[in-house]
Amino acid sequence: MRRPANAPTRRRRGPWVRLALLLMLLLYGVPLLWILITSLKSNVEIFANQASVIFKPTLHAYQQIAASGSLGTAMVNSLIIAGGTTLLTTFLGVLTAYGLARYRSQLIWWILGFLILLQMVPQTAEIIPLYHIFAVTGLVNTRLSVVLADSALLLPFAILILRPFFRNIPIEIEEAAAIDGASRLRTFLSVVTPLALNGIVTEAALVFIIAWGEFLYAISLLSNPGDYPVSAVLSQEIGAYNVSWPGLMALAAVGSLPILIVFLMAQRRLASGLSLGAVK
């Protein structure tokens, strides 16, 4: 399955390609670096010269967010929301995607069309109705409501990502298990799921990443900023003009650490598997 990096061509890169790569390195490396550099500056330095590269680094911004303690709360909220969304979405997504992969009928195109339509609806359009549903059920202002809303947002995406992985599993393998007398559910759990594990991990990583960054449902469904996840805190801080940029960037850097961890764990799968799922 793993291809060596140089598989497609063994051509040596020309000057244009090298130039393109360097440009991409700058375009994607500098903003990332800039987050770190800014977080190590003092407010005085920012005021004097925002664009400086040589300056006296300070951990002041990090010490401040550590002392305020609000980051810890926000991280826990993010973990609950992104973790809960990943679990719920993956559970429902795996079942549905398997069903859709094995179901042969014209109806399937209608269902897929429905999923894609949902996937395409602007998030802003769903806030008020969702708020009402959660208000009626008494879930509004709870992190659970954000988990449910995020799952509704991401489930179509998860199903579309997962379905090709199940389609790629030859049905004969299941049929062999069926001849041995296993039930459909058991076959699914013991034979199909392990084979699709690659796809499930990819899907779970993507859902976690997107749920970690989601903030619109969070600021709309939660009244108490004590329940806000990191993304919602950041969205309010950046919008608020009286920003301390070093503090904000320190918050962004620390708040993105879990994404780095997920990225490091899933990088290879993301780079090779995502596209397969997303496209077919």
């Binding site: 009402h132 208000a135 600021i219 919008g239 608020a240």
Partner: peptide, 19 residues
């Protein structure tokens, strides 16, 4: 004391009243 960001205040009060 519950801090609500300035831009969210009207939103939140109206939304809360609606339930």
């Amino acid at each position: 004391f519950v801090y609500i960001p300035y831009t969210q205040m009207t939103n939140k009060v109206v939304a809360a009243a609606s339930i």
